[in-house]
């Protein structure tokens, strides 16, 4: 029994080079398929949607998606570490001010 790979579209570049796509044709940033409309003909995603690269596999994923559609890695917001650092800085500053005030 052989394992069959799931079907994945492998769009080929046009024979005439990049200019052969013509006006209005775009390459989907998610799957790489060529499309003539805002919605990709291959994956159905909005080709103009806000997107971010996956830190693990590098593929583009929509910003609204919580995890990478390709490798499943979950996206983490920068605020997850920035907010605790900011709070810690202010706590240390206030504590230092209290200590210096008591030392006088």
């Amino acid at each position: 029994m052989s394992y069959q790979q799931p079907y994945q579209p492998q769009p080929q570049p046009p024979a005439g080079g990049p200019g052969a796509y013509g006006r209005g044709a775009v390459v989907c940033p998610f799957c790489g398929g060529a499309s003539n409309s805002q919605l990709c003909n291959w994956c159905g995603r909005d080709t103009t949607a806000p997107r971010r690269p996956c830190p693990r596999c590098g593929r583009m994923a929509q910003t609204v998606e919580p995890a990478c559609w390709n490798c499943g890695a979950r996206f983490k917001s920068d605020m997850a570490w920035k907010i605790p650092v900011i709070i810690l800085l202010f706590v240390l500053a206030i504590a230092l001010g209290i200590v210096l005030g008591l030392a006088r």
Binding site: R52, P53, D78
Partner: peptide, 8 residues
């Protein structure tokens, strides 16, 4: 790059 936005 963290995020990509585009406006036609």
């Amino acid at each position: 790059v963290q995020e990509v936005l585009e406006y036609s």
